[in-house]
């Protein structure tokens, strides 16, 4: 066995890394959330004022709820796209499986910004979609609601996060022993019944992991609202960003960040428990 000194020596660098770049910033953020700003200076006096402000002011709660609503829709659409795709690839793609898998992954290699701007050029007033609508004489003037709206944010983020739902679902489908599918059909279940009774239940862990990815990543997103969101598409992370930027309200921003963090951790904890319940060795 390895000596204590050796174990300590190899675990020290990662421990130091995590402490320095993860735990310390979180602790700092947590502390900031109890401080205040006076005369453009952060004052280290402890109070719950920031949290009181959050609860009292309807705008923060409203934006948080809107962000969750956007995240919920993105999650739903990403699952509706990602699951059938993963199912088709895993069970029916045959020899093209590898190629198709790579094609699903390729967008992940393209910069987030490029994909965001791509949607801007598609949805904009003089964009590709409006050009087509006018060319076909479906509309006379550019349609405005396409860009700078919650719709545009949901569309863009669905596009960006669908591969994140696809991957865990695909992995869990690939893990289903194929003889279970055969056994189901052998016992008289049609392909449809086999899907609902065997394949779907056994892919629940992947489904949950995919949903968690889409929801959590969307909830923390601030680029898509900036690129395609407009005033109606502002999300909670944009507010945090503003508070840390021009507004110089680090304590209030920290308080919001702590709230989101608690929310996300609670969500991860809950899905983890459900996932474990649906995992069978």
């Amino acid at each position: 066995m390895y000596s204590r000194a050796y174990k300590l020596a190899i675990s020290l660098p990662p421990l130091a890394w995590v402490t320095l770049f993860l735990l310390a910033p979180y602790a700092l953020m947590f502390m900031h959330s109890f401080w205040t700003v006076q005369d453009n200076q952060i004052v280290h006096t402890w109070s719950l004022n920031n949290y009181a402000k959050l609860v009292a002011s309807p705008v923060y709660v409203q934006v948080l709820l809107r962000s969750m609503w956007i995240a919920a829709r993105v999650t739903l659409f990403a699952l509706l796209l990602g699951y059938p795709l993963a199912y088709f690839l895993s069970f029916h793609a045959g020899p093209r499986k590898e190629l198709l898998y790579q094609l699903v992954i390729v967008p992940l290699w393209v910069s987030y910004l490029v994909r965001g701007y791509a949607w801007k050029t598609i949805l904009g007033g003089d964009g590709v979609l409006n050009g087509l609508l006018q060319f076909l004489h479906i509309t006379q003037h550019p349609v405005e609601f396409l860009l700078y709206s919650p719709f545009a944010v949901v569309l863009t983020l669905t596009h960006i996060y669908t591969p994140f739902t696809f991957l865990p679902i695909y992995a869990s489908l690939e893990h289903i022993p194929r003889n279970l599918v055969e056994a189901s059909q052998d016992l008289g279940a049609s392909p449809r019944a086999t899907f609902w009774r065997v394949i779907l239940p056994l892919s629940v862990p992947g489904l949950l992991a995919g949903a968690t990815f889409a929801f959590v990543l969307t909830l923390g997103d601030f680029l898509a609202p900036i690129l395609v969101g407009g005033p109606g598409g502002t999300m909670i992370s944009n507010i945090v960003q503003t508070l840390f930027g021009a507004a110089y309200q680090w304590p209030l921003g920290s308080a919001i960040a702590v709230c989101i963090l608690v929310l996300v951790l609670g969500l991860l904890f809950a899905t983890e428990r459900v996932e474990r319940k649906w995992t069978f060795s």
């Binding site: 055969e182 056994a183 189901s184 052998d186 016992l187 056994l202 069978f280 060795s281």
Partner: peptide
């Protein structure tokens, strides 16, 4: 006939019991 219409049942080598 597809397998689910055959009045035939199989005992698989690895049993293939549904884990859930």
């Amino acid at each position: 006939q597809p397998p689910y219409r055959r009045r035939v049942n199989t005992v698989f080598q690895s049993y293939a019991l549904f884990p859930h």
